[in-house]
């Protein structure tokens, strides 16, 4: 698994539950180091072990843990870069949903060895969508990202995650768009504000 994913899990647990909890997770997952490097690649089994350890220790269902992780990635100030990169997907939430079909290729464009899920969007009558993906049961992360992005755009949506097949081989997220401009979204300018 790409280090960026593992590093995300590390930052999420550390920022949300504290460094001590992260140390416990590492010990439980039998990690040699408590630090993942975002630019290195790790064995998939390691990622799996960390997720399992974290969900056990935090007494949180795997699906919920991953969803929270996805939400954190978009909303935490530390990972603002990701939020901005996702916002390049489009001007409206619907544009953004359609841009998810490019997610895999956009990821590759930025980091050639990054393997983001291939996503297929189906639109049913303008306000209802089915997002199909195959990401070795990491799909709930996408759900969390979508929830946070809906807030970004100020859209009101109902979403649900479904998994079927062995190891959740077929994952889907159903999206019901109730209102596109329910609330004031967060602002986004193409040019970055220099700090």
């Amino acid at each position: 698994m790409h280090g960026l994913i593992n590093r995300s899990i590390q930052c999420f647990v550390r920022d949300t539950y504290g460094a001590d909890r992260w140390a416990e997770v590492c010990a439980r997952a039998k990690l040699e180091s408590q630090d993942f490097e975002a630019l290195l690649t790790y064995d998939d089994a390691l990622t799996d072990a960390v997720i399992r350890a974290a969900s056990e220790l935090l007494e949180k269902e795997r699906v919920l843990f991953l969803e929270d992780l996805g939400h954190y990635l978009v909303t935490h100030p530390e990972s603002d870069a990701l939020r901005r990169l996702l916002r390049f997907g489009g001007e409206t939430f619907v544009d953004f949903l359609h841009s998810l079909e490019e997610l895999h290729d956009r990821g590759r464009l930025a980091l050639p060895d990054l393997d983001l899920p291939r996503i297929e969007m189906r639109e049913h009558g303008g306000s209802s969508f089915t997002l199909g993906l195959c990401w070795g049961d990491l799909g709930p992360v996408v759900l969390g990202v979508l929830r946070a992005m809906a807030d970004e755009y100020g859209a009101l949506v109902l979403m649900e995650y479904h998994a079927s097949g062995a190891h959740a081989r077929d994952e889907a997220i159903t999206i019901e768009l109730l209102e596109t401009t329910h609330a004031e979204g967060r602002s986004f300018a193409l040019g970055r504000v220099r700090r």
Binding site: R84, L85, F88, L109, L111, A189, G191, R194
Partner: peptide, 26 residues
Amino acid sequence: VGRYGLTGTDFAPFDPTVEMLYLIEA
């Protein structure tokens, strides 16, 4: 884009400028 607060709609949909900005930022 920073100076004039340009957004995605300021570029034609076939113009890859926004993709270029995405890439630069990534």
